[in-house]
């Protein structure tokens, strides 16, 4: 016979049929209600998918235009990672009641202008601009947006999205670091540093005009932090305790 402790008597920490547990462990702090409903989630995902597709195509196209072999190989590797991300989104869409899994839409014209500018460099000596566009503008933006999404969506009802975001964020963190290492290594002169900074600023302003991958409010939303109840002190606390004592006395005398 297992000795009953106070917590196991409440079903917590018990073993077998006396463990009156919820379908998740008691330390699970996930939230049931997230920032968006199903339709709103789909609307964001088709924007993500648009960007991942454009990004993967550009990384593929740039390979042939970079004379630096290590850069050529870097973008070839990352090309597939973004195509895979787009494909994860494609598979998630029908799970969210979207019948057209090929939907893929920019949020507004300004975002299209941003992506067109980002993918514009072609000449062999523009490796710096190509890398800066991807690793200093596009990837940091994705890291911010995907992390935001992972934090605010319901991690119970929308947990398939949270899970695939984990894979993408893992790739993007690695890409961010690999890209920055390459940029640091290539930017050997003040001139190259200036070019990197100027191009980053130009793209960032365009991204700002668009409001982000989902348009204005890409990272916005209502604060949904669970707040503890306000403190009850002084007179109010004394009255509340008195009332409780009277209820208890009445119960014991009857």
């Amino acid at each position: 016979m297992v000795e009953q402790t106070e917590s196991s008597a409440n079903g917590v920490g018990a073993y077998g049929i006396t463990r009156h547990a919820q379908p998740f462990p008691y330390w699970d702090r996930r939230r049931l209600v997230g920032e968006w409903d199903v339709e709103q989630s789909v609307q964001r995902i088709v924007h993500y998918k648009y960007f991942e597709e454009r990004l993967s195509a550009a990384l593929g196209g740039w390979g042939a235009t970079m004379p630096e072999m290590d850069c050529k190989n870097l973008v070839a590797r990352h090309c597939y990672e973004h195509a895979w991300h787009a494909d994860l989104w494609r598979k998630r869409l029908p799970e969210l009641r979207e019948v057209n899994e090929d939907r893929s839409e920019p949020p507004n014209d300004a975002f299209v202008r941003f992506v067109d500018k980002l993918t514009e460099p072609f000449d062999h000596d523009l490796t710096m601009e190509k890398l800066v566009g991807i690793y200093r503008v596009a990837i940091p933006h994705l890291l911010a947006v995907y992390t935001f999404h992972q934090h605010v969506t319901s991690d119970i009802t929308d947990s398939p999205t949270v899970r695939i975001l984990g894979f993408m964020l893992q790739d993007d963190h690695k890409q961010y670091v690999e890209g920055e290492m390459m940029i640091q290594d290539l930017a050997a002169t003040p001139e190259l540093r200036k070019r990197a900074g100027a191009w980053q600023l130009e793209l960032d302003l365009l991204l700002g005009e668009a409001g982000g991958i989902c348009g204005p409010g890409t990272l916005g939303g209502l604060p949904k932090i669970q707040k503890p109840p306000h403190a009850v002190l002084g007179d109010e606390l004394r009255k509340r305790r008195e009332a409780a004592r009277k209820v208890a006395e009445a119960a014991s005398s009857s």
């Binding site: 993967s56 195509a57 593929g60 740039w62 390979g63 050529k72």
Partner: peptide, 11 residues
């Protein structure tokens, strides 16, 4: 081949 496949993705 890297270049050709990547260009197919872009083109």
């Amino acid at each position: 081949a890297l270049e050709a496949a990547g260009r197919s993705a872009w083109d």
